[in-house]
Design a protein around this nucleic acid. Structure first.
Length: 420
RNA sequence: GCGGGCGUCGCCAAGUGGUUAAGGCAGCGGCUUGUGGCGCCGCUAUUCGGGGGUUCGAAUCCCCUCGCUCGCCCCA
């Protein structure tokens, strides 16, 4: 018989992991709340066209990584490979931008059909932020600071912020021309991938990992030189803002990012403790996107961070805290006792206590062993004789010595009063 | 899509051609027929990812296949 298992690249998160994930989500939400950023939830499934138009036909994400299929109505659908396009679509659809600028956060699964490796799955999860309708470079600074502070709060000390400016559309067209010209005279020195990109997407050559290509690029014209004075000024404001906040960053003139919609500020937060997939958070400005998707001319800036990669970095943190453990562990034997036990557990829970109940019918010694292991502070023991008297034994499990630990016979009423 | 590594019980793991597939953890049962951290005893893989082949004999050798994993590509 064929073993049934999850599809490649689809990962189960077991309780040991979910505790950590909840911690991350809780921390992030706390930062969003303080920043007056509102949650938005959009569908996992969208029209394929949203992504091909938004992210760009020539990108790898659209070209070879999308989970696309025809639904029963012959509509071309795609499981979202990223969050920004959906958020922008929702904004346009509901006319939110006519109500002024918007600050959003989202969280959820994304899908890309790639070979899985460390820090990369086919279904992965992102927490992201999108600020729409903000043109001021201070919004770049605010979003970056939000990401930075959130990661600091999670205890990540050894992370790097890399920063670049892609300029506006005109800057990039100019730069592309000069880069292509320069590289065309040196095609022989390029690696295969880069040769391919020379026509398709020349800017991407900049972040080639091929060492020879990188060496060559040191002589090449840089994006920075191609920026208009206006773009340069804007970039200066962003840098000055980060400096003033004491957020350290490194300029990386080769940081271009793979999605077509980025302009001006582009940034990545990386860690060198992650293996090959070092980026835990990436984002930037995307001023043309709203209009490109059929909305009003409007600017935007945002980022997304990878939950799996974040979880990898924080995985050393202890998962279960003291107050998440059960306060009571209910043990019972005998027909009447067992049903009484269930009711008592429920009544304690209605009083907001954390209660674990043993449903095994094993010997008391066995059940109490589990009570001990569970870390519960109190055991409630109900056998036939207690059930007859409508009482129970309350046993203090905090004492490590079983012989001298306190226990007493009490009624449910007394119990509920005492722990009210 | 292309490379490298790996696949023995829920988890970790010995075994590298001879047959009873070690051991540890976890789980279950018992010592303690109604009472917890220790200890002791017992149970838990007709089977070594799957299929085929070589051989008197294979978890151990060969072929195919599936899966996992790391890397390339790319991104979070």
């Amino acid at each position: 018989m064929e073993k049934l298992q999850a599809l490649r690249g689809m990962v189960d998160l077991l309780p040991e992991q979910t505790a950590l994930w909840q911690r991350i989500e809780k921390t992030a939400q706390s930062h969003f709340k303080r920043g007056a950023v509102n949650e938005i939830r959009t569908p996992l499934l969208e029209a394929t066209e949203l992504f091909s138009r938004g992210i760009g036909e020539a990108t790898d994400v659209v070209g070879k990584e999308m989970y696309s299929f025809l639904d029963r109505g012959q509509r071309n659908c795609t499981l979202r490979p990223e969050g920004t396009a959906s958020v922008v679509r929702a904004c346009i659809q509901h006319g939110l931008l006519s109500q002024g600028s918007q600050k959003f956060w989202y969280s959820g699964p994304m899908f890309r059909y790639e070979r899985p490796q460390a820090g990369r799955q086919r279904q992965f999860h992102q927490i992201g932020v999108e600020f729409l309708g903000f043109d001021d470079p201070r919004s770049d600074i605010e979003t970056i600071a939000l990401a930075w502070d959130l990661l600091q709060d999670l205890g990540l000390k050894k992370i790097n912020l890399e920063l670049n400016s892609l300029g506006d559309l005109e800057d990039r067209i100019l730069f592309r021309k000069s880069l292509v010209n320069w590289l065309s005279e040196r095609v022989d020195l390029l690696d295969e991938d880069s040769k391919d990109r020379l026509n398709k997407n020349p800017l991407r050559i900049l972040d080639s990992k091929n060492p020879k290509t990188q060496l060559l690029l040191k002589e090449a014209p840089t994006l920075n030189e191609a920026l208009s004075s206006k773009s340069k000024e804007r970039f200066d404001v962003v840098q000055a803002g980060l400096n003033q906040m004491g957020i350290p960053f490194q300029l990386n003139p080769c940081l271009v990012r793979g999605l077509d919609y980025y302009s001006h500020t582009a940034f990545e937060i990386t860690s060198n403790e992650l293996g090959a997939q070092a980026t835990i958070c990436g984002g930037g400005r995307y001023d043309g996107l709203v209009e490109q998707l059929g909305g009003p001319s409007s600017s935007g800036v945002g980022w997304a961070l990878g939950m799996e990669r974040l979880a990898l970095l924080i995985s050393t943190i202890k998962p279960t805290s003291e107050n998440e453990r059960a306060k009571f562990y209910v043990v019972s034997r005998g027909k009447k006792a067992e049903t009484n036990a269930l009711t008592i557990a429920r009544n304690l829970r209605l009083k907001k206590h954390i209660v674990e109940i043993d449903l095994t019918r094993a010997a008391f010694s066995k059940q109490l062993k589990r009570a001990d292991k569970s870390g519960a502070k109190w055991a409630i023991i109900i056998g036939d004789s207690e059930a007859e008297q409508r009482k129970m034994i309350l046993k203090d499990m905090r004492c490590s010595n079983a012989e001298i630990s306190k226990e007493e016979l009490i009624t449910e009423e007394i119990l509920l009063n005492r722990f009210a």
